[in-house]
């Protein structure tokens, strides 16, 4: 889990960075850059959290009351 989250984090980070660099250099229009970030930013954020979280727990039923 942590290993694949790390890979996803790297892929997401690189694609956001590349899109930013290409847009900054004027090679791709703004909407392409925006589309890449909109698609890549959410998985990157979640992958970052999944990568550094404490560990995976065993699945449980939902909270059913105090």
């Amino acid at each position: 889990m942590k290993r694949s989250a790390g890979k996803l984090l790297a892929v997401g980070g690189i694609s956001c960075g590349t899109a930013f660099a290409l847009h900054w250099a004027g090679w791709i229009p703004l909407w392409v850059f925006a589309a890449v970030v909109v698609l890549a930013f959410p998985p990157t954020v979640l992958a970052l959290f999944l990568w550094w979280m404490a560990g995976e727990g065993k699945e449980d039923i939902p909270f059913i009351g105090y």
Partner: peptide, 29 residues
């Protein structure tokens, strides 16, 4: 973000995780 995490046993797995991505994605847009 540092806490131990899992998906509840009764959840609809793809939707449970996918919706978090959608939530961040739409506001990025």
């Amino acid at each position: 973000s540092f806490k131990t995490t899992w998906v509840p046993a009764t959840a609809s797995r793809a939707l449970f995780i996918g919706i978090v991505l959608v939530a961040i994605g739409i506001w990025t847009a």
